[in-house]
Structure formats: C-alpha cells, structure tokens
Design a protein around this nucleic acid. Sequence first.
DNA 1: TTTTTAGTTCTTGTGTTAGAGAACTAAAAA
DNA 2: TTTTTAGTTCTCTAACACAAGAACTAAAAA
Lengths: 159, 159
Amino acid sequence: MHRICTMKNQLNKKQEELIERYGVIQEQFGLSPAAARVNGLLTVADQLEFTFDEIRDVLSLSKSATSNAINTLLTLDYIGYRTKMGERKRYFYSKLDQWKDKMEKGLNRYQEYNKTMKEILAQRTPETTDYNNKLEELTQFMDYYMQEAQQIIKNWGNL
Amino acid sequence: MHRICTMKNQLNKKQEELIERYGVIQEQFGLSPAAARVNGLLTVADQLEFTFDEIRDVLSLSKSATSNAINTLLTLDYIGYRTKMGERKRYFYSKLDQWKDKMEKGLNRYQEYNKTMKEILAQRTPETTDYNNKLEELTQFMDYYMQEAQQIIKNWGNL
DNA sequence: TTTTTAGTTCTTGTGTTAGAGAACTAAAAA
DNA sequence: TTTTTAGTTCTCTAACACAAGAACTAAAAA
C-alpha cells in the first residue's frame, strides 16, 4: 500500500518562520533544537495533531531525533498524545494549558535560590553590616515577589 | 619579594559548601562553572573585595578561566570592581543591588515570547476555535502577569 | 633599561551534546 | 508465518564549551 502525496500538512512561509522563531525562544528556555522545533510545529500548525512520521516528514528529522524530542516534551508535559480506535500510532498535540502550573513551578526555583541566599546571610560575619543589609533586603524582596506573584497567578480567571 | 602566607582569604567548610551550592544554581541560570564559582565566592566570603590573583588562588583556577569568568560577570553586571590609589590591580566585588533591574529585564524576555505567541495566533486558521481561544487566553494571561509583576517590583521599597 | 605586575589572548586537550543512520523490538496485519 | 508498522535504542561523528598552560602585552617598578 503506497502513500499518496496529499500536501496535507504543508506549511506556508509565515508558519515556517514562526516555528523557527518560536524554536529559538524555546532553545533559550533549555530545549534541544529538535525538541524546540517539534514544540513549535505543534503550536503553530493549523493541523492540531501530528503522528510521529508526520513530524519527521515536516521537520526533516531522523527517527532518533524525533523520538528523543517527543519524549522530552512528553516528560516536560509540553505536549500530550491521544490514540484512535484500532490504530497503534499516537497523535501528538501541544498542551497549551497548564502554563499557569509551569509559571508556579518556575517560581519554586527562586524559592530554592532564596533558601541558599538566606543561608549565606546567616553564616556571614556581622562586621560587613552594609553588605549584609543589602543581602537581607534582597532575600526579603524575593520572598515578597514570590508571594505576590503566586497571588497574581491565583487571581487569574476570577477577577 | 616573596609572598608570606597569611591565610587571610581562607574559607571555612560551610562557606565552601555554600559557594558550591550557589555555583550550581548559577550554572542553571546559564553561567559557566568557573563564572558561577567566582560569583559565589564574591557573594559568600566575608572578605568583600578580591583581586584577580586572590580569586585564582582561592578557587584554584587558571589565569584564562579567571579572566574569562570575571569578564563575563562584568558584562552581565553581576560584579563590579574598584581600584586603589597608586595600585594597578582591580578589586572585584559582588553587585547585590540591581536585582530588581535584572528581574525587570527577565520579564522582558517573556514580552518577546508573548509577541511571538500573538503572531502565531494572528495567522492561525479561524477553524480551530477551541485551540485559538486557549492560545488567546494564554497571551492575555501573560500580558496580565507581566503588568502585575512590574507593579510588584515598582512597589517594593515604598510600601 | 630590564623586570615585575596584572592581566589578555591563543593553542590545545577533554568532555559533552545533538543528531544521523542502522539495528533492534513488539504488536498488528497480511 | 512473514511482513509491516510504530517506534526505541545503540553507535558513531561533528560541533561546541570549558578550562589549562603558554605566549603575549602594556604599564609600572626597580
């Protein structure tokens, strides 16, 4: 059974450009180039669900690159997939929701940062008053910011 | 003129551990291992100012590693230096302030992200209503978050 | 003038990452 | 039973980042 070329999942120039731009941004957030492009494709394309091989074809990636990219994105919960009755293949889609979740988790990283800053402050000589005060102000600012930011996120939806 | 060992800038165990921990966190924020340790040293040590060679000695870094680390940190404005009358060497210190600045600049990265998201939304087919609505909610959430976060930062100091 | 100081820049080695391609696997179809 | 599908895993290579050490430089000291 050979495949008929349907041009179904063809992208236009603008979409290609947006996938690249989105990809670059995502790389800066720590994704590999391939993972960033896959995520871009699933975000930009009009087609909402892509199979493994469609992703491969459209982005010209090797099987291993595709496999690894998909699994990273699944682990990070950036994408999900569903299956269809009587088919084995998976249909991958972008998870646009739970951005709020990710933002909240992002804040937790600062929590850890601040924990270390407080420990640094705690063990310092009391002699460097000026410096210590600045350090203390910083830790307080971070506590304040994280608390307020959490509130901001919670408020969204019911304002 | 040979150098007498003064043990002046010796660190205790706790300080060493904190420099390493702080360093790891900073690496996650994109610094090279050496730059992260230098920044850690200048943050943790009781001694507030270190010369090039003191940094080298305490952290056992090569000249090139030290030089590159210092210059990255200067460029990023994580550290500064001053000089003393009649001396050529520079005394480096941690810039603890302008954290607010950095936070604000951090928000700008999301601004760019969101700009791209809006462009993605703008060029999408109107057919995928559900998806488009989610995407729109996301861009609105990000606008809202950034605005509020900016406000939070501005409010600090005069509450 | 020569030497020392305070670095910077260049060269080289090492380790890590990303991804291609091939080999492999497990389930379903033929 | 053999083949196809839908991937995963392994091997290998190219590219790159980090840092050591040597060579270099410009200003100050001797």
